[in-house]
Simulated assay, not measured.
Amino acid sequence: MKIVLAFLMLAGLLAIGVNAGSEPVCSYRNNAGETIFLKYLPLLKQGQDYVDFGADGKCMKRAVCTENFKTEVEDCAKHRVTCGNKKTFPGVFPGCCVKC
Results as ranks from 00 to 15, higher is better:
60 M>Q: 10
25 V>I: 05
99 K>C: 00
25 V>R: 15
13 L>H: 09
66 T>A: 14
51 V>F: 09
51 V>T: 06
72 E>Y: 15
54 G>I: 00
69 F>D: 13
57 G>M: 01
66 T>K: 12
53 F>T: 00
30 N>Q: 11
15 A>Y: 04
63 A>V: 07
64 V>G: 02
37 F>I: 03
22 S>Q: 08
18 V>K: 13
61 K>S: 02
57 G>R: 13
71 T>P: 04
23 E>L: 07
69 F>G: 07
58 K>Y: 03
3 I>K: 14
73 V>T: 13
14 L>V: 06
3 I>R: 11
81 V>D: 10
1 M>L: 01
98 V>A: 10
60 M>F: 11
88 T>F: 12
46 Q>L: 05
23 E>A: 06
99 K>G: 02
76 C>A: 13
27 S>F: 13
53 F>K: 02
100 C>T: 00
61 K>E: 09
92 V>A: 14
70 K>W: 09
60 M>K: 14
25 V>Y: 15
64 V>M: 10
81 V>K: 09
8 L>V: 11
48 Q>R: 08
62 R>S: 08
14 L>A: 00
4 V>C: 06
75 D>A: 11
94 P>C: 09
61 K>R: 15
15 A>T: 02
90 P>K: 15
68 N>F: 05
77 A>L: 10
33 G>Q: 14
70 K>I: 07
61 K>I: 01
84 G>K: 15
4 V>Y: 14
24 P>A: 06
73 V>A: 05
15 A>G: 00
15 A>L: 08
33 G>P: 07
43 L>W: 05
63 A>Y: 10
77 A>K: 15
42 P>A: 06
27 S>L: 12
96 C>Q: 10
90 P>N: 08
51 V>W: 11
27 S>N: 09
75 D>S: 14
25 V>K: 15
34 E>F: 10
99 K>S: 07
54 G>Y: 08
55 A>T: 01
73 V>K: 15
15 A>M: 08
76 C>Q: 15
60 M>R: 11
54 G>D: 14
95 G>N: 07
96 C>F: 01
52 D>E: 09
10 L>Y: 13
43 L>K: 12
35 T>L: 12
59 C>V: 00
43 L>Q: 09
42 P>N: 01
45 K>M: 02
70 K>C: 03
59 C>R: 11
6 A>I: 05
24 P>R: 12
29 R>H: 12
84 G>C: 03
7 F>Q: 11
45 K>P: 00
34 E>C: 10
